[in-house]
Write a protein that binds this DNA or RNA. Structure first.
Lengths: 210, 210, 210, 210
DNA sequence: AAATAATCGAGACGGTACGTCTGGTCTTACC
DNA sequence: GGTAAGACCAGACGTACCGTCTCGATTATTT
């Protein structure tokens, strides 16, 4: 009982104050943007949220899960797939949208949260389940529509496909060895779709697709 | 003179004790492996190296640059390009070697150092200059040999090419959403080289190419 | 609020732990006796008291005020005036008692605290208010009784009188140029009371005066 | 041999650099005035004197003896006895001169040096031999002249006499519980000379003496 | 209505590590 | 051999947060 776990149910007693919860998440998100995860402190959050440290520790095990929840709450709404008739164009639009997001502070924070997950299994799991997997699932659906329409090979593991598309985006986001701009992402998608090797076929734009 | 910067030159006075320097770097590398960057402490390093804290602060601004230097000193020798007649095979071998390294603790530490670079420009610069850029330079040379031999397209920015190949490796190293094993890397290289889209050509390519 | 001042009142929050306070004062007094103020360290006190350094800094600005409070707490009870019918004998007894105390470690510590007060106004004030003034007040009352009984001149500032009596005691305590023994103190009192100059009268004074 | 003792004689090698010695003493005296003994640091002295720390440690065991020597060098010349035909007036003039000196920074420093002597026997000895004893010797001579002239009692230990005169001065210098001004010193001398008790004789100013 | 129970704020507590300062020692090159 | 420069080990400094622990006050449900 000593580790303060989030209560599953509490039938009696004073109910959880949702205003405090919101204030904490908000303060965390703000500070995360302002100073980054590295310099985030529970005391700072408590002060900014006008809340006692106890209240934070009561509901979140550690800085990581709190930061993560705050991050997810703030960022998740900003990325969503559109769904049109042309799956590859959907994909291209979505990747561009992600790229734009990752260029900024969101990318910086995300990177810190990933690093955090290296040491703490729970943070890692939460990051995957709460952020990565849902987005990959949507992306898979998009790719499957493309396969169904016969514009993509059907002999490759979807997970590998997605890695090939998103991997380089994350790579540049984290290493920052070059710009993560529209042109780069476009070139990258071309490469992923048509390969590096010399071949008779190019991306000859099936008439009407582009 | 109050900010303790690494001296550029010191013609007089007691010279720097290289034994202490080595001990510090060694202790740092060991602790980095043992507990990760997150739980690395200067006090711990000083104790393990048998050195005063001041000696550390005299030569390294902060934990980041020290950890980075220790990391580079320890890891750099472990990755090198072979050079044979078949550049694409060189590439494949090298990527597999990198993949193997990133599967383990090295990957975990690297990921923390990257996150660190998000907030501190100097750490970021040092990571790029000391680690990433040299490796990319070698990789570029390899790709250029392949282009010269006519097995790779010559109309694509080399930086984008390299991103397409290495990006997904790093992606999996950091997110750990799937195994970073030999089969994955092989599949990834095939994809990068031949593309996702449906084409008459497949990898066991035109006779005589391999 | 950044300078950690002793709180005036705290209506809310966890109340101050008096056990910790006592332990700190006790440890300080002990170490003061053992090693003197010069080698007193907050870390040492914290360790001996089984207390965190922060707890000390929370309630005492610096080593000086802590040492002083510990000193006063430990020493004050040891000196008190007796009150008999013969004020001059009361005085003589009290001065001898003080002399005995100052011969030992108490004197040594007191001397260090006085030196400390030279640089820090607050320490100085606290030393005067907490130690010196109360004792001088009592001594004044004693002298006034003597004056009322007609055995002491009534035309001299009481403060000067007291200085004349106690000054030489402190002088020898601090300079240690000679013994601070019973004989010395007796001789001193005779001198103070009857003067240095040649006069017909000697201490076993005119009949009827005592 | 490890404790660096001041060399007694050095028949060979480079002779001691007196310029360095002077610079060190001067810097020490200056810093002593400026920040007091408590915040005096060897590093500061070395920096201000343009001298290596080694050079200081070679010639002085510790901060105390250095500070003391610097103090004596700077202060000694400021106090000297005059010698006239009226010993008691000489005394009065000298005590006033001492009082004036002790009112200022000299007193503050002196007090710190005395405290220092509580813990370190050598410092204490040096303070007595170098400062106190010579001054007391001169004062004794003065008193003896007064005794020879028949204006002072000859049945009292000279040491006690001197304590009775100088003790209260030091007392006020160190405790600062009241002003150390001309009037105070005058009153004090009267008291010391003529006593506190009621007697037919007052200081009736032997004609021509005052 | 009272009792019970969990929440909340405030803030003290024992700790760990921080980055700095100074004390003394040593090592080197120069004079 | 003395000296300036400065690196070295050692250890205390005062601060920032950590995660835990009382408190008194508040807000519900259950008797």
């Amino acid at each position: 009982m000593s580790p303060p776990k989030p209560r599953a149910t509490a039938t009696t007693g004073r109910p959880r104050d949702d205003a405090a919860r919101q204030a904490i998440l908000r303060a965390t998100a703000d500070l995360l943007e302002e100073v980054g995860f590295g310099k985030l402190s529970i005391e700072g959050i408590a002060a900014q949220a006008g809340v006692a440290k106890t209240t934070i520790y009561r509901w979140w095990h550690n800085k990581g899960v709190l930061a993560l929840e705050a991050f997810l709450t703030a960022v998740s709404p900003k990325i969503a797939f559109t769904e049109t008739a042309a799956p590859l164009e959907d994909l291209r639009a979505q990747v561009q949208r992600v790229g734009k997001l990752y260029r900024g502070k969101t990318g910086r924070i995300l990177c810190e949260l990933i690093a955090l997950g290296q040491a703490d299994a729970e943070t890692h799991r939460q990051l995957l389940d709460g952020y990565l997997t849902p987005r990959r699932t949507v992306a898979k659906a998009c790719l499957q529509r493309a396969i169904a329409q016969g514009v993509l090979r059907d002999d490759i593991d979807l997970n590998v496909m997605i890695d090939a598309i998103y991997g380089p985006i994350w790579y540049r986001m984290m290493l920052r060895h070059g710009p993560l701009d529209v042109a780069y992402i476009d070139a990258l998608l071309d490469l992923a779709l048509y390969g590096l090797t010399i071949s008779p076929r190019r991306r000859p734009c099936p008439p009407g697709q582009r």
